[in-house]
Structures are given as structure tokens and as C-alpha cells.
Design a protein around this nucleic acid. Structure first.
Length: 184
DNA sequence: CAGTGGATGCTCT
DNA sequence: GAGCATCCACTGT
């Protein structure tokens, strides 16, 4: 299955399926170990209420990156999926660093590998993702998405850091990973 | 450990 | 003017 075919499916299929893939930006990054699903009929989603303003990329074709500023200070990155204007995307919440660790240490200003990419704001800082990448295709440089050699076991839990629709079990983690932002 | 509060920009009311 | 899909430093056990 191609990346495009994978991302064209329901966000509830795409989100767990992305766990284990390796995301690189200019060769720097790691293995995806934590994501969350968001969709249009979801009060916690930026796409809730239909396309307007900053959320337009969420209603575009699958395989693009939706980047927004969080709490005025951080960037958060989502993989747009489904397509056909459904407004669904997968929030990238944590990576296990594998490539370019020294570059990520320098960008983050710390040494502990477990803290480099264990949170949505940390991850974008470590990989150098900013609003300049909003709307960019993940199928082209500087991005690389590599499939896992073996599909990892995935654990489901409730989403983190939201007040609305906080009870929906739409957070997906690599089982047993030490690099998630919070244990399941 | 846990809990609290500040930084800071953008969207929405 | 409020609220936010966050992170970090600081406080107190």
C-alpha cells in the first residue's frame, strides 16, 4: 500500500497505522510512537464547524501537513488524511528519536533523548517544523515517511490536553514505548 | 514526586 | 477579552 492510499482511509484507521512509521525532516527525526485523531464532527478539532481561517489545510488533500501555533509559543503538526474535504487529521504527539539526534539536541537545548520529541511542541522544535511547512506535502522533500519493518503493537487511550470531547479514546501509542509524552 | 503559574500569538465571541 | 490539541521553571511535600 502506498502512503497516499494509507492516508486516504478513515482517520481511525490512519492514526493507529501511522504508529511505527519513521518521520524525517531533512534527515532528522524518528519513529512515530504517539498520535491523536481529530475529525470535523469533533468539538475538540480545529476543523469543527467547517473550513475557515487557519483550518483550510485540514480540508485539503491527504498527505499534507497542517501546522498551527499552540499557546502562542509552540508549533503542532498534523497529517491530513481521508481527503474529499472531510476535515480529518492526525496530531503527531511523540517520536522515538533515531536520526540526527545531535541536531535535535542542539535545537532543543538539552541532552536527554527521551525529552527530545516526547510532546507535540517538542517534536516540532526538534525537527524544525514551523508554519512555513503548513500545507506542505509529506511525499516530497524535505519530508520522508518510511514504513515500519514490523507493525508495532498499538495501545489506545484518551486524548491529552483538551477540555472538549476529552473522553474519546482517540490517542494511539506504541505499546511500552519510553518516548511517549505520557503513559497510557 | 505533585501542583501552580508564566510566556505568548492567534482565533473566536 | 477569553480560551487554547503546550512546555518549562518553580514551589512544596
Amino acid at each position: 500500500m502506498t502512503l497516499r492510499e494509507l492516508l486516504s482511509r478513515s482517520v481511525h484507521d490512519v492514526a493507529p497505522a501511522l504508529v511505527g512509521w519513521t518521520l524525517l525532516v531533512d534527515g532528522v527525526g524518528g519513529r512515530i510512537v504517539e498520535v491523536e485523531a481529530y475529525r470535523e464532527d469533533d468539538p475538540a478539532s480545529h476543523s469543527y464547524g467547517g473550513p475557515r481561517g487557519r483550518n483550510l489545510v485540514m480540508f485539503g488533500p491527504p498527505g499534507r501537513l497542517y501546522v498551527y501555533r499552540s499557546y502562542g509559543v509552540h508549533w503542532c503538526a498534523n497529517v491530513v488524511c481521508e481527503g474529499d474535504g472531510t476535515g480529518a487529521a492526525v496530531l503527531l504527539r511523540a517520536l522515538e528519536p533515531t536520526h540526527g539526534i545531535e541536531t535535535m539536541r542542539a535545537r532543543r537545548g538539552l541532552d536527554d533523548v527521551r525529552l527530545l520529541c516526547s510532546g507535540p511542541g517538542r517534536l516540532t522544535q526538534a525537527l524544525g517544523i514551523t508554519c512555513e511547512h503548513n500545507g506542505s506535502s509529506l511525499e516530497r522533500p524535505p519530508f520522508t515517511l518510511l514504513p515500519p519493518e514490523q507493525r508495532p503493537a498499538v495501545v489506545v487511550s484518551r486524548r491529552i490536553g483538551i477540555r472538549k470531547a476529552a473522553d474519546r479514546p482517540w490517542r494511539y501509542l506504541a505499546a511500552g514505548s519510553q518516548f511517549v509524552s505520557r503513559a497510557a
